[in-house]
Amino acid sequence: MDRKDFLNSIGMSAAAFALINCLGCKKTDGNSSSDTSGPTGVNFTLDLSQAANAVLLNNGGSLVSNGVIVAKTQAGAYIAVQRSCTHESYTLTYQAVNSRFYCPNHGATFSEGGTVTNGPASRALTVYNTQLTGTSLKVYS
């Protein structure tokens, strides 16, 4: 085998290897999934007297449960939206000071009511109902 044949062989092998590895390419970084919709059939209750949920006793507090961000606004209202951005499913954060949900991946923002306030997202968040009874906060579709 001469030098030219050898280099061709290496180049073809590398190209074939790259093609095989990229055929199934998709995001798997742990921060995203292929679903940009919120969970359906949501129906759970948080006991606000438990330490794990105590952050919701304070205005501006938030937590993630069952694929939903549950937050207490600066005004003291409870709100709940899907935890994933509608652009590429990255995990959102609640920014109480700015009264919004923020995607740290591409900078999309959403109002507390779930509407898009800054792209690249173009679809609103799924919003869930909340009902406080004593220290039990029910979150449901």
Rank of each mutant, 00 (worst) to 15 (best):
M1S: 13
M1L: 06
K4R: 14
L7E: 06
G11F: 04
A15D: 06
A15M: 14
F17D: 01
C22W: 15
C22V: 11
C25I: 07
C25P: 04
T28L: 09
D29C: 09
N31L: 06
S33D: 14
T36Y: 01
P39D: 04
V42K: 01
N43Q: 05
N43V: 14
T45K: 03
T45M: 02
T45L: 11
L46S: 07
L48R: 02
A52Y: 05
N53E: 06
N53W: 13
N53V: 15
A54L: 04
V55F: 05
L56A: 05
L56P: 03
N58H: 08
L63M: 14
V64H: 00
S65H: 04
S65I: 08
S65E: 15
V70R: 01
V70H: 02
K72G: 10
T73G: 10
Q74P: 12
I79L: 10
V81W: 01
R83E: 15
R83F: 07
R83C: 10
R83Y: 13
T91M: 10
T91G: 11
L92M: 10
L92I: 13
A96Y: 05
V97F: 07
V97H: 05
N98K: 04
R100K: 11
R100A: 03
F101E: 02
C103F: 09
G107P: 14
G107E: 07
G107I: 12
A108L: 01
E112N: 05
E112C: 09
G114V: 08
T115Q: 10
T115V: 04
R123W: 00
V127C: 06
Y128S: 07
Y128D: 01
T130Q: 03
T133S: 14
G134Y: 07
G134E: 10
G134F: 09
G134R: 09
T135S: 15
S136H: 01
